[in-house]
């Protein structure tokens, strides 16, 4: 391990400590009986550390399989059947559900909407969240109180905030339209949720409002770990504030950014409540996401197979999002922000 540009040494010590901890495990294991030549397969297995580890992992594995893998596979299986509500398992129909989806314009519209929603909302959430985190990281009066206040949108239950937004966006009683009319800036109500482009913008805004605190607070936590001594040294060297951000803050924050954005993208991609409470996918399906369409087809129309097919179609996109950040986090360049690959 060469010298690293690290914010502080605590993490490094922690790693060392855990490494030492791991090395103590074997010493506490029963010492292998030394009957060379005579040891049976069972003896060898009994003393095999991997074999022991397998047993320790079993409860966790069973838990994961029961509550994560099984429902997932059931969903995927269902997408290959013509199951309906109340039927109790349908017939296997192969790819029929997917074939119908292939030339279903509403499905493709929902894919487009989902991508648009995710990309635009996540990008803005990141920009605003990072800016907010940098602001909150400064010394100011009532620091703790302001930091707590930022979390409010995140604390309010989604459905509640969605209902609040629904009133804000109401076609007749919108507070925004009302204020603008009173100020004489416009002369008729804005059709927030009735016009395709306005509706898309409106739901994206509501999602950003909800999602920014998560990004901001997590990045703030990351900023706190950056040692002030680095900034002091940089200031002495005559670095501008942009250079300090670019060469100290940003590189040290990259691992956290990768994690936060992975979560942010996943949450946004699978968003359901906000859309359902605000528009139910309308107007004319302009805000239907894959998740809401899946619910409408699967639960409301009772076509479980087709709903499951739409839900399954989300998996590749989610895998791609996870893969990007996963491989990104493996790379030292991402971790350290330097050019040594």
């Amino acid at each position: 391990m060469g010298p690293r540009l690290r914010g502080d040494d605590t993490e490094w010590v922690a790693i060392n400590r855990s490494y030492n901890g791991m090395t103590t495990i074997p010493t506490s294991l029963p010492t292998p009986t030394r009957h060379f030549g005579k040891s049976s397969a069972w003896d060898r297995l009994r003393t095999n550390r991997n074999w022991l580890a397998l047993w320790f992992m079993l409860p966790a594995a069973a838990f994961l399989i029961l509550f994560l893998a099984y429902p997932l596979f059931l969903g995927v299986w269902m997408s290959f059947t013509d199951d309906r509500i109340g039927r109790g398992g349908g017939n296997f129909v192969g790819l029929e559900n997917y074939e119908w989806l292939k030339d279903d314009s509403i499905f493709w519209l929902s894919v487009f909407n989902t991508l648009l929603y995710t990309i635009v909302a996540s990008a803005i959430k990141f920009a605003v969240g990072l800016y907010l985190a940098l602001l909150l990281n400064r010394h100011m009066p009532f620091k703790a109180l302001i930091r707590a206040a930022v979390l409010i949108p995140f604390i309010v239950p989604t459905v509640l905030s969605a209902i609040a937004f629904w009133w804000i966006y109401d076609s007749q009683f919108s507070i925004i339209s009302w204020s603008l009319i009173k100020m004489g800036l416009i002369d008729h109500n804005i059709n927030f949720l009735g016009d395709s482009s306005w509706a898309r913008g409106s739901v994206i805004f509501a999602n950003i409002w909800r999602g920014v605190p998560f990004v901001a607070i997590t990045l703030l936590a990351g900023l706190q770990t950056v040692s002030p001594s680095l900034y002091e040294a940089a200031t002495l060297d005559g670095a501008t504030s942009w250079q300090r951000f670019r060469f100290i803050t940003y590189p040290l924050l990259t691992p956290i950014i990768a994690v936060v954005m992975t979560f942010s993208v996943l949450f946004t991609f699978t968003d359901f409540q906000l859309i359902w409470a605000l528009t139910r996918g309308g107007p004319v399906n302009a805000t239907h996401l894959m998740a809401t369409l899946s619910y409408q087809r699967g639960i409301l129309s009772g076509r479980l197979g087709e709903g499951a097919a739409i839900a399954t179609a989300m998996i590749p996109f989610l895998m791609a999002a996870i893969a990007i950040s996963w491989f990104g986090m493996q790379r030292r360049k991402w971790q350290q922000g330097t050019d040594n690959d």
Binding site: S171, Q172, N189, G194, T279, G282
Partner: peptide, 22 residues
Amino acid sequence: FIPGTASWNDSSNNKAFLAGQL
């Protein structure tokens, strides 16, 4: 129509009618 009917749910017209706008 009054603008916005494409976004209406089951309670929208009740509200607008009772407010004297519809």
